[in-house]
């Protein structure tokens, strides 16, 4: 059984992000990278499948710049068997990434039985790659998955707005995009970190997996930090005569500006 887990490397949630000089992306020079937290659920799910199916092989795939391979090494330290890195700039759009992932999976020579991803990356929050990838591979896909059972067919629980659950029965192979709540990702262990050193990592260039600049669908420009939050409004209601007016004003503001009531 071949399991592919697609992971993305994203800025650590504690990193202060700022736009690059030309505004076409973020400044990546001093960023601390981590594995996208939703992808950790995907890696853990693959490891759980492998626990009941020892012959399963877990390949982690990542498209991104090479200077740091944190996410792939972490996944292998957690227990994945091998890794594929597609070397590319960090500013690809979702279409290019999905196409590169498909190309890498095709090129691995292994026929996928299950493809796991996080439901979204916490940097650009596009929520597109799993579905695009499934479309390109002509496979079924289910996203925001919080329950996973493999009894020949996959039985997947999917969270919908309002907290209700949808249950899907899906043929394998399939693309499953994982959400928080599916499992508790294990820590990479120290022996795992040592073993990961010796695990194979295949590297491809974008061109090797059939992706070129012509595939770009989204061109980024004018990255900006969000405007600073305006300071809170203060009302003086110490004078009893004014209190009625102040209450009216506050209600107006809550209704029209904050749209809270």
């Amino acid at each position: 059984m071949n399991i592919f887990v697609c992971v993305k490397q994203v800025p650590d949630t504690e990193t202060k992000v700022k736009p690059s000089g030309d505004g076409t992306f973020i400044d990546t020079t001093s960023i601390k990278w981590i594995m996208n937290p939703y992808d950790e659920f995907a890696v853990e799910q693959a490891l759980l499948v492998k626990q009941t199916n020892a012959s399963a092989n877990i390949t982690v795939v990542r498209v991104g710049s090479v200077k740091d391979t944190e996410a792939l090494r972490t996944a292998m330290a957690m227990g994945a068997d091998d890794a594929i890195l597609v070397q590319a700039d960090d500013n690809l759009d979702s279409y290019m990434i999905a196409k590169a992932l498909k190309g890498a999976i095709d090129k691995s020579g292994k026929k996928p039985d299950l493809i796991l991803t996080g439901k979204q990356a916490i940097d650009d929050d596009c929520l597109q790659v799993p579905q695009l990838l499934a479309q390109m591979l002509n496979l079924p896909s289910v996203s925001v998955v919080v329950g996973f059972e493999d009894g020949g067919k996959l039985k997947l629980k999917r969270e919908t707005e309002g907290g209700s659950l949808e249950i899907y029965e899906v043929d394998k192979p399939a693309v499953v995009a994982c959400n928080k709540g599916l499992n508790t990702p294990r820590y990479a262990s120290l022996p795992g970190i040592m073993k990961a050193k010796k695990k194979p990592m295949t590297e491809f260039k974008l061109a090797d997996v059939g992706v070129s600049d012509a595939d770009r669908r989204v061109k980024y420009s004018n990255f900006q930090l969000p405007p600073e939050k305006p300071p809170g409004k203060k009302m003086d209601a110490t004078d009893t005569a004014k209190q009625k007016d102040v209450v009216k004003q506050v209600v107006q503001l809550l209704r029209n500006e904050a749209k809270a009531i």
Binding site: E70, R73, T74, A77, Y187, A188, S189, L190, I193, M194, K197
Partner: peptide, 14 residues
């Protein structure tokens, strides 16, 4: 080394 950095990262996460 890369491993030492990873060891420290893991410990910090823990």
């Amino acid at each position: 080394t890369t491993e030492q950095k990873e060891i420290k990262e893991l410990a910090l996460k823990f």
